[in-house]
Design a binder for these strands. Structure first.
Length: 599
RNA sequence: GGUCCGGUAGCUCAGCUGGAUAGAGCGACAGCCUUCUAAGCUGUAGGUCAUUGGUUCGAAUCCAAUCCGGAUCACCA
């Protein structure tokens, strides 16, 4: 049980004993961390009970406080200020906490549940390379997966590759027309970038044709439909659906290039998946669901043969599920894929990491599945996140206005390398070690930058301003960790201290305020992890780790460890920083960020 | 127009299951390295928590309305 839960329990019991007339269900105890300017650790708000009991707040507070301190060794003293009962936690609690957990690698993690949660993220199109906006999706999905694992869930990390459709045909057409057989090998270009270049090329050609048609007197709408290159792309899509051998061959080749490129990027970022779905294999799945729905009377057919669902009773519109010619639309595939995922893994929860522009789509998807009576419906959860935009607006691959993911990673690593060299603290490092460190710092900064903000908030990223390595950053946390490791090296502390050291630390009775602040924060880790898991929000963990590093830095500046005032204090502090380093490592690992021992 | 999301310091963001004088980082200014890593620490300046009204002993937090910004509402994906 967490400290605050324990306090809540003890206070509730005490109030119930003293004042049975108080209805604690109607007005539950409210416990907060005591504000820094007052003495104490946790505060009970008394106002809700003052009225019903018709007592003065200070009398009530003193009565409760006296009983608590007399009966429970958890509390060492109390004070009442206005309507607030400030409780001081006995040092022994924190000494025990440290003793129990300082080297527990599983501190805060929860026992394995017997469930399966799928987290689908990344899910790229195969017509262009990954950009900065995709990174937010990828890091979010990966972090949420790790957080769910740490809280005992069986997690399946899934990637649904959008490998078919008009967009890939556009790249294919442009390649056929202009590439002269260029391949990643022949050009020395990373496969995903090569294909992306032809996607941009397609749009250039398309625009030129549009301009010509419009100059010839055609209106814009017609021109968009009549442009020859667009017709070619649509013809190619038909050929693909018919399984035309030549088209399939080119499609496979170009997708293969893209996958090679993606895998390089995923590897670089430390991202992996347990299950890959390909839209080319799933895009026909939803049709049967739609046919069944029609039989059940949940759906209806219009004169032209198209099939719809009426969601107006739910405040939404009529939604098309199957075209008049019997072909699928976007949501048809998603219906089928949702069912497939559910049946593949017996999922208790299916999380979709998808940008908030698709909120409506996801809402409709879930509603339709529910109306069809599909058991997967209640398992679906849309983890919606805000898009990353440039100061000039949205990133658009076809316009070429994107910050490329590979470039961004390379830039951050380069920046980290320069600054590391400038610091001049890595003298004994080999070239290899230096590069590893730069990757840890550069990639860590990037991940943290994208994860530290509440997912639902939109972000604006200015490529002209490089991501900082000071302040609220991964670097700050990495640095605190390196400092701890430096002390531990110097003091030659093994991870498990000797019995003598343990006893020495136990003998310490008085805890300095800075030590206590650190311990109080360490105590919160399991609660924060649990919250981050419930909310699917890694930013809470980012904030927590940053605050912990901040508290450590304050402690470090004020209190010496190797020159502590006594042996007891020294061993106590060594244990304290061992635990701090452990929690920092575990917390940051959830975000895929490693902490160096030296930097 | 309907629905959804956001609006907190110059900038980027915490805080939002109601609690004490609204917190960090960046930027600005002033200090701190013969003592464990200064990628750090300490301090100063900087706020009508978009606006108005309501609920309450108490509102950045809950409710309503308004204003601003964004997303979305295709036989596109």
């Amino acid at each position: 049980m967490s400290l605050s839960a324990e306090i809540k329990h003890l206070v509730s019991t005490t109030i119930a004993e003293l004042y049975p007339e108080v209805d604690l269900n109607a007005t539950p105890i409210s416990i907060n961390l005591t504000k820094a300017e007052f003495e104490g650790d946790y505060t009970v708000v008394l106002f809700p009970y003052v009225k019903t009991l018709r007592m003065k707040p200070d009398v009530l507070g003193n009565t409760i406080g006296e009983k608590l301190v007399a009966q429970h060794s958890l509390f060492s003293k109390f004070s009442v200020v206005a309507g607030f009962l400030n409780l001081t936690i006995a040092d022994k609690y924190f000494i025990d906490l440290l003793q129990r957990n300082f080297n527990d690698k599983c501190y805060g993690t929860q026992a394995l549940k017997n469930n399966k949660v799928m987290v689908e993220y990344s899910s790229p199109n195969t017509n262009k390379p990954l950009h900065f906006g995709h990174l937010r999706n990828i890091f979010l999905g990966a972090a949420v997966s790790e957080i769910l694992k740490a809280t005992g869930n069986g997690v399946v990390k899934a990637n649904l590759i959008n490998d078919r459709g008009i967009h890939i045909c556009k790249s294919m057409i442009a390649w056929k027309k202009t590439a002269n057989g260029a391949t990643p090998e022949s050009t020395g270009t990373k496969g995903d970038h090569l294909v992306g270049d032809y996607y941009v090329k397609f749009n250039e050609l398309y625009k030129a044709e549009l301009a010509q048609l419009i100059a010839g007197g055609m209106d814009e709408k017609t021109a968009e439909k009549e442009a020859p290159i667009m017709k070619e792309a649509q013809d190619m899509l038909r050929l693909w659906e018919a399984g035309d051998p030549e088209t399939m061959q080119l499609w496979k080749a170009m997708n293969g290039w893209v996958y090679e490129g993606f895998n390089v990027t995923y590897d670089k970022m430390g991202i992996s998946f347990d299950k890959w779905y390909y839209e080319s294999e799933t895009y026909l799945l939803g049709k049967k669901l739609v046919e069944d729905g029609l039989k059940k009377g949940v759906l209806f057919k219009k004169e032209n043969g198209s099939i719809w669902i009426d969601l107006s009773a739910d405040g939404l519109d009529e939604k098309l599920l199957l075209r008049g010619d019997g072909t699928s639309v976007y949501i048809t595939q998603d219906l089928g894929t949702a069912k497939l995922k559910y049946e593949d893994f017996c999922l208790s929860k299916s999380i979709y990491v998808i940008a908030d522009e698709q909120n409506y789509h996801m809402q409709v998807l879930q509603l339709i599945l529910a109306k069809l009576g599909e058991p997967c419906a209640p398992t679906i959860h849309h983890l919606s996140y805000g898009m990353v935009e440039l100061p000039t607006g949205r990133m658009k691959s076809r316009e070429g206005t994107v910050v490329d993911a590979d470039d961004m990673i390379a830039e951050m690593v380069q920046l980290a390398l320069e600054q590391t060299k400038q610091q001049g603290k890595t003298d004994g490092f080999t070239e290899e070690e230096l590069n590893q460190l730069a990757e840890m710092i550069g990639l860590g900064a990037l991940k943290f930058y994208l994860l530290r903000v509440d997912p639902k908030k939109k972000m604006i990223f200015d490529p002209k301003e490089s991501i900082d390595l000071h302040g609220f950053t991964a670097t700050f946390i990495q640095y605190a960790h390196a400092r701890i490791c430096s002390i531990l090296r110097k003091e030659q502390v093994e991870l498990l201290p000797s019995a003598a050291q343990l006893n020495a630390a136990k003998a310490k009775t008085d805890i300095h305020k800075l030590e206590k602040d650190l311990l109080k924060h360490l105590e919160l880790y399991p609660t924060v992890l649990n919250n981050a898991s419930n909310e699917l929000n890694p930013s809470e963990m980012c904030n927590y780790c940053f605050q912990l590093a901040q508290l450590f830095n304050g402690f470090y500046a004020e209190l010496s460890i190797s020159k502590a005032e006594s042996e007891e204090a020294k061993h106590f502090r060594l244990m304290l920083i061992v635990m701090t380093a452990l929690v920092l490592r575990n917390g940051m690992k959830l975000m895929g960020i490693a902490l160096p021992e030296k930097m």
